[in-house]
Design a protein around this nucleic acid. Structure first.
Lengths: 340, 340
DNA sequence: TTGAAAGCGTTACCAA
DNA sequence: TTGGTAACGCTTTCAA
């Protein structure tokens, strides 16, 4: 059987609360004499007493746990620096504060977003871009602070979001291609991200940027079939440049090109999104929009901890403020002037 | 205020336990009439009732949480597939079983390994190779199942370990170099891993393998100073091949070589450990010992869940069994016959 | 079929 | 300086 605070109380002939005050007591106004205190500590050590964090959390209404929720939990693909970067930022904020990071399957896979308020978490960092009506509902009605990443600011009322400035990012990318002399460009996205808020936002931003540059912006849904790239090997190719939703998509396209007889950047130019270290390892090295994922995650998590502290101290919640991050274009070798 | 089971009881005019039986009841032998049950469910929905998982865990002595502990939590370097692979394996076992994964700073950074038995976790997967006396003590005396990765089997009594067969792995590496004609070889390790059980085990295995091949096996502590590599550019270089503790160390060496005027594999051959996808991205591509990290993590975590189930069902713990994984050598471009 | 009561292990409040 | 009592929200046992 586990040793409890009462076992120690019995063994030392004092009350449970004296034990609590000595062993775990923080701001308790209870004073225990030095002698008794030492005796209590000695017995606790003897009996290998360990405070039960669960009981304490229940009592204090503070679990010191934060859940992080992202999509595709089932595959932190080792070629995708996104997740390690995200987790690095999160841990850098959480750990010094003594907070434990939780990855909960009910939140990651299911649709059961109401789990956010099941009492286990002091706060939640929501990084899933596939926001359904039901999910936003659960988040708005949760009884704990929630901070989002990647969601367009204001999408969920009262919930701060930390996200990239997609509009300016895609304008930068399109402008770069325009300056190189491209006229036929396309936005490439996978079937899953196509329906996420982030996917929709970037496509919209791409179209706006293409319009502004007076180019026709097409949409390509990338289904991982190299054959789809075959037309780009010919001289009358439908587009001469791809702006991809992510480095991952860009990487897949890059890998498929040789199979379809397409050469980058001679036949087509390719731009990724994230500018992760992955871009240095591809051949050719991938030009990409630099989204500072780690910095964003660190800031978002820090903000979440602030909100948690505020609510526990009864501080009135200040106005919801979102943070939008600029993305510069890291130009590498996958973009060049189009062939005549 | 949160809605509790009692609020619903009051609103529907039944007792708390009927509500519990209807909403969360699993194997309860309590029967509630259809009418009341429907009424209870309706009110629960109305009041946005969410069962408090913390309270339930405390009562049931089951938290459905497993902690994973590894070193260097503070840097899941994005060029190191080890952590993503590990986490993939862990999640693949945990999530279908409805288990939440926890990363706890007290376990990851500190020396406070007694935290394993603080009641929050049903089990712990211990992947930190820096095992002190105190840590093994806390693990042996914990009141929950613990499974280790990377620890030599039998090191901690009663705790199963899932680890690579370092002896045979390093024999394979040394044999490969021997066949290429190398005579002067060294084991390269960083100052941190030098003192971990895994570091010690691999060095020992390297020495044994070198002895068996009648080569002199040296030790090099890699402090990330390219200057240290300068001697290897000359004809009278002290060694002609490095076997590295990890892909990470090998990658750093590979990156430093050009700075010291050393060419791989012309001047020296380099072998890594893990054979992660990282090896495909280096120039030259890195020859490496393939440790199936993800498979190991999946198996270890599955075993941990089995142990948890056993203890909850009062099944007598069967004999502790460890699993040792073979590592094949993936030969790429960083090894070749030594220059005359 | 239903309810009352007793915990799980902790801490806060009030009285001594 | 101390101890008793009552929660936190849930589930299980026993009795009606």
């Amino acid at each position: 059987m586990r040793t409890t605070i009462r076992d120690i109380a019995r063994a030392t002939g004092v009350s449970a609360m004296s034990v609590s005050a000595v062993l775990n007591g923080s701001g308790s106004n209870v004073k225990v004499s030095k002698d008794k205190a030492d005796e209590i500590r000695r017995v606790a050590l003897d009996l290998r007493y360990r405070p039960n964090t669960l009981a304490r959390s229940l009592r204090n209404r503070r679990s010191h746990m934060v859940a992080v929720v992202f999509q595709h939990f089932d595959r932190l693909a080792d070629q995708q620096p996104y997740y390690p970067q995200l987790l690095n930022g999160v841990m850098a904020a959480l750990f010094p504060a003594g907070y434990t990071l939780a990855l909960c399957p009910k939140l990651m896979q299911g649709e059961d977003a109401a789990t956010v308020s099941d009492g286990r978490f002091d706060g939640v960092l929501w990084c899933r871009p596939d926001l359904s009506e039901e999910v936003t509902d659960s988040i708005v009605n949760s009884n704990i602070p929630v901070v989002m990443m990647h969601a367009p600011p204001g999408l969920v009322a009262g919930v701060p979001s930390f996200c990239a400035d997609n509009t300016s990012a895609l304008r930068t990318a399109v402008r770069h291609l325009c300056q190189l002399g491209h006229e036929k460009i396309a936005f490439v996205i996978d079937p899953i991200n196509e329906h996420t808020v982030e996917g929709i936002a970037r496509l919209k931003a791409f179209r706006a940027a293409a319009d502004a540059a007076e180019l026709e912006g097409e949409l390509i849904i990338w289904r991982r079939r190299p054959a789809e790239l075959a037309p780009y090997a010919r001289a009358d190719r439908p587009h001469t440049a791809f702006v991809c939703f992510s480095d991952t998509v860009a990487g897949e396209v890059l890998a498929a090109c040789p199979l379809a007889g397409v050469s980058v950047p001679d036949d087509i130019s390719v731009i990724g999104f994230d500018s992760s270290s992955f871009c240095e390892g591809t051949r050719p090295r991938l030009t990409s929009l630099n989204q500072p994922v780690e910095r964003m995650a660190l800031a978002a998590t820090t903000h979440l901890l602030d909100l948690i502290r505020d609510t526990s101290e009864g501080v009135a919640p200040s106005a919801t403020v979102s943070h939008i991050y600029d993305c510069v274009l890291d130009i590498r070798e996958s973009t060049a002037a189009p062939h005549a």
